[in-house]
Design a protein around this nucleic acid. Sequence first.
DNA 1: TGTCTACATATAGACAGCCTACATATAGAC
DNA 2: GTCTATATGTAGGCTGTCTATATGTAGACA
Lengths: 107, 107
Amino acid sequence: MNADALRGHMDALLLSVLEHEPLHGYAIIEALRERSGGELDVPTGTVYPALRRLERAGLLAGEWASDGGRKRRTYRLTDAGRKALTGERSAWRSFTTAIGSVLDPLR
Amino acid sequence: MNADALRGHMDALLLSVLEHEPLHGYAIIEALRERSGGELDVPTGTVYPALRRLERAGLLAGEWASDGGRKRRTYRLTDAGRKALTGERSAWRSFTTAIGSVLDPLR
DNA sequence: TGTCTACATATAGACAGCCTACATATAGAC
DNA sequence: GTCTATATGTAGGCTGTCTATATGTAGACA
């Protein structure tokens, strides 16, 4: 998976994976890997800053929790985040349609 | 169309639009707009540098031509470019499958 | 004649976000 | 006591897209 290809789609991925359950960063990375059949292996240096960015933007709400001695920051979708996810999904469809129409004009 | 979303897919678009006929930069922009139903409107400041980059990489071959007093630089796919296009198409499929599996897990 | 639009190419510099590499720490297995 | 998995985070680099600007021809139109 080329790194540049992910640009601008990270937000959609993060929002989507948090749609049905709150998760912490590490678990998000695993969820992305599992859901994509191992295709998406996003480095921590990408995910943690992105989560903070989405939190600052009001799309996610983060909260510290403890599992034994381990500290986790668990994120859940806000209402704005849920709305944004809808937009991201529709943008994804437009995007794939547009690029696809150029790459595979016969279909 | 968000600008960042295009990142890493520009090469595929340019190679693809040149697959069946050589074109010059301006015509490429129009072809992208037409093929995508107006969705893709790529600025000149993106296309011209990208074409040079692909030329330097050996995927395109450019040649100056004249139509009356107008000068055009017409690009055609090289053999390496044709090979790269195949790779870009397959990468595009992996990419959409991976992202799609996260965004629309039900399908 | 002058102006406007479409055609055509190009570059400089800004910007954003993803990456690598590194730092830190706990838990549990062995 | 060492190793691996779990867990978060930052600094700095990279690179490709964008905006803005520059330059010039051709043709329409007044």
